[in-house]
Design a protein around this nucleic acid. Structure first.
Lengths: 357, 357
DNA sequence: CTGAAAGCGCTTACAG
DNA sequence: CTGAAAGCGCTTACAG
């Protein structure tokens, strides 16, 4: 290895030397803190520009280590067998937490049952009482979410929305997929697979369909494609708020009897495994099945060829990135210019091995 | 924000206090450096375990800042209009370089023309003469690559292979896609799109097809799928080493006349835009077209519906991750357990907006 | 085999 | 409005 030259010839020290001031003063200018005369400020800024000064992030963070703890409130659906999906975002959050815990981050978790609005409202209340430094939520129930967002706005607490967005609200940013296009993309895949004379079944399985923005928007995108490129007459819809296996199977059997020419089924969420189980039980794995999320169960059906396509939206990365964004903002004041729209990934039995959540 | 407690109660300082030694000695034990008596070593190790000590990476790096410069040699195809693809890995490498330049990284670039083996050999020679601390190459020409790998082995210089692998060679790791499965996945997509009575054309466009491992392996994977699930008799092959547009078009016209029932065309690399241009010119965008890489030109054809699917393998991330892996290894001695297999992403006109290279 | 001291680049509490 | 000094957690050249 060679000698390293001019390592100091930028840096706060050098700026201070040239400006004939102390490092503290340079620091004040860099961070736009008050208490510096206009004259010195200008002088220092000129030198900063001239040297094209870039702060050493490592040193910055290290120096901040002794500062106070930053407390993040995270509001997430809890993980039941039924909603295994939420394990992934939580893992991403845990990962971020582990990485930056030693630099002064603390994460407080608030869980809720996706079927019980009152718990959600209660947790929102709790968060507001605990007065966190930053907030991260999945806005399953809109009215309560908006209440929280307004609290954050007045208190100037940054809030990140994850997984699904609320239009027209003040927040630091949204981190998640463009759900409309997720549905639209599904329809496109369906179109490629559809043979002549066949129809498509679109299936919503959730206790609260009408309140579930994620499902509704995906469905909207899906329909939009059919309106545009094919015809809505090719579509057969099935909604079930009873998510137990036998109930879903019964409804599906019923519908299949009425509509025998179903060639493709699109399930709007991770419950696609219920449909897969049914397809397998009636020996109809010739029907193309498209659904959501990289869950162990779904992958099993994918391997066996019962599920054909899974759309995935990097849930772990969503969690990780959300926490990191809040941390960066709170510690370094890193500005967040825009929402971070997560890629919509297509997984089949041939590429699932390499997928990274 | 709250007060931060017990910030010191782990850390080298605390270990030293408990072991009644200096921090230097603790450091020696942590890094397994010689010059510590077995007795103190054991004592210190016990405390490290007890405290579950995790080093502060920030502080580590910062302390190393004053050390020497690390010089990485990077061997890449140069970027011509014809091989725009290679811009992306280069960007990833540049990004990594920019991020860690200030921590003592220097990257030396060696470019070569993919059609001229002699230049590749020459650059390999150059690299060996310049005696770098780490090496990153895309092993386009195998014999010369192996020569370099052997040099690295004897000199104990870590070497990362990127984009395509060489079996059975000693190297730090491979970072890139599993190319066989990339071809296999393409065939699976073809299968979903294929209608009755239709045939599939597989197109290789490159000056050096027989020497291009990447192309050969993808083709192999593609054929494997057809052997397994359909029949090779459905396949029509076209190889052209003349990569100029009119030459490719002429060959395609010829073949299309002989085989009128082509329903899908699979192009094994980023030159898919040549085929797209031709399809558009003869007004046959009904034929499904599958190819590679997120290039501006390809995306244009994707938007217009001429190209249907693009497979992409995060070339920028490949470059970025390769440099980072070498840096981590050289600076922190981070062990590299295994190859990093890049996901194989499927891009259509409905999700390209959200793709991240 | 071991330790005291200086240093990495930045931040801050305190004093003036 | 400004500066001297101490500190973040880790590493290292030097002395013994």
């Amino acid at each position: 290895m060679e000698e390293k030259q001019d390592s100091l010839l930028s840096g706060v020290k050098e700026i201070a030397r040239r400006a004939k001031v102390s490092r503290a003063t340079v620091d004040r200018v860099i961070h736009n803190r008050p208490g510096v005369s206009v004259k010195t400020k200008n002088r220092i800024n000129a030198i900063i520009k001239e040297l094209d000064y870039q702060p050493n992030v490592l040193a910055q963070r290290l120096a901040l280590t002794s500062r106070g703890i930053i407390r993040l409130a995270v509001l997430l659906p809890d993980i039941s067998e039924e909603t295994e999906y939420w394990k992934a975002p939580l893992e991403g959050i845990n990962k971020a937490e582990a990485e930056i815990k030693q630099y002064g981050l603390q994460v407080d978790y608030y869980f809720f049952d996706q079927n019980v609005q009152s718990v959600f409202a209660l947790q929102v209340q709790q968060i507001m009482e605990n007065n966190p430094d930053g907030v991260l939520i999945t806005p399953t129930f809109e009215p309560d979410s908006i209440r929280l967002l307004e609290y954050c706005k007045t208190k100037k607490i940054p809030c990140v929305l994850m997984n699904s967005d609320i239009a027209g609200q003040h927040r630091l940013c949204y981190i998640g997929p463009e759900l409309f296009d997720s549905g639209y993309l599904s329809a496109q895949l369906v179109h490629y697979c559809l043979k002549d004379q066949q129809k498509v079944m679109i299936v919503n399985i959730a206790r609260e369909i009408e309140n579930n923005a994620a499902i509704l928007v995906k469905e909207e995108g899906f329909l939009a494609y059919f309106k545009e490129k094919l015809s809505e007459r090719l579509l057969v819809a099935l909604n079930t708020t009873d998510t137990r296996h036998h109930a879903v199977a019964a409804r599906l059997n019923e519908l299949l009897e009425l509509e025998s020419h179903i060639g493709v089924i699109y399930v709007t969420n991770s419950r696609v495994s219920l449909v897969a189980q049914w397809l397998e039980s009636i020996g109809r794995s010739d029907i193309i099945l498209i659904g959501y999320d990289y869950l162990a169960q779904n992958i099993e059906f994918l391997k066996r060829g019962v599920i054909d396509f899974l759309l995935c939206e990097k849930p772990q990365e969503q969690g990780y990135r959300s926490v990191m964004t809040l941390f960066q903002f709170l510690v370094f004041g890193t500005l967040v210019k825009e929402d971070y729209l997560i890629p919509i990934d297509i997984i089949t039995s041939a590429n699932y091995r390499y997928y990274r959540n």
